Amino acid sequence: MLEDVPVQMSVVLGSSQLPIRQILKMGRGALIPLDCGYDDPTEIYVNDKLIARGKIQVAGDRMSIEITEVMKRSR
């Protein structure tokens, strides 16, 4: 019964604020600096609610996330 319930999952590596004029000037291969470092935790959201944090793992052309912390349920 639950197998067909849709959920939206987002993995947030970091964020950045840029003026629209700068975004419009970007071309293919442009780099966008993020407000995080290499070892900073990545946040995992389900239906816009933070549920866990983790670390990005890269192996060849595959990327995955290792869960390092599960958030406590709020009541």
Rank of each mutant, 00 (worst) to 15 (best):
G14K: 11
I44P: 08
G29A: 06
R73I: 09
R73C: 09
I56W: 04
M71L: 08
I44R: 02
Q17S: 12
R75C: 03
I20H: 05
K72L: 04
I20P: 02
L18H: 12
D4L: 13
I23E: 06
N47S: 01
V70G: 08
E69S: 13
I32T: 13
G14S: 13
I44E: 00
E69A: 08
A52G: 05
M71D: 10
M71I: 08
Y45A: 05
D61W: 08
K55Y: 04
K55C: 00
S64T: 01
V70W: 11
M9N: 00
L2R: 15
E69W: 09
L31W: 03
P41V: 11
P6T: 06
I56E: 07
I20L: 05
G14F: 10
E3Y: 14
D61N: 14
R75F: 09
L18G: 03
M63E: 02
V11F: 01
G29S: 11
T68H: 03
I20A: 07
V5M: 13
R28G: 14
V7N: 11
G37M: 02
L24Y: 01
L13N: 01
G27S: 10
L18R: 09
V12C: 04
L13K: 04
D48F: 03
E43M: 08
G60W: 10
I32P: 03
I56N: 03
D4E: 15
K72P: 06
R28S: 11
M9A: 10
S16F: 01
Q8H: 13
K25D: 06
R28W: 08
G27N: 05
V46F: 03
R21Q: 11
S10N: 14
G14L: 09
D39K: 15
L2P: 03
V11C: 05
Y45F: 12
M63Q: 01
K49D: 02
Y45E: 04
I32R: 12
K55A: 09
